[in-house]
Amino acid sequence: MGMHIAHIMASCMGGIRTSGDLVAWMQMTRKMRIHEAKAYVAEKLGVGIIDLTDEEIMRDIRKNLGIGTVTSIAGGPKGIRAKCKIADLLGINIRSVSLFKSQMGFPG
């Protein structure tokens, strides 16, 4: 367990603390290499690549876009609700989101 945390501290983008989840989605859904994935996400967010792992910047962006923040804001979207917004923001298909939308009768 400690080993995973050490890797996260040493070289990980930081998940939903910053934009790691967003960049990971691009690797998974578009096979993007790391630099391409970061550039894509940075462009969608309107920030520089260096800002993608800056908690101070990403915190506000995530809160404003409703794509999930690491600290729990009462009423703030997380989970499938945040992922619906992430799929729209990045223009990608997230399979759990597609299923959720179809179950709810929302347009895909």
Binding site: H4, S11, C12, G20, I34, I50, T53
Partner: peptide
């Protein structure tokens, strides 16, 4: 004791 990549060089960690 601990070293790390520079800001901006971070990558995705899958598990």
């Amino acid at each position: 004791r601990i070293v790390s990549v520079n800001p901006g060089e971070e990558v995705i960690v899958t598990d």
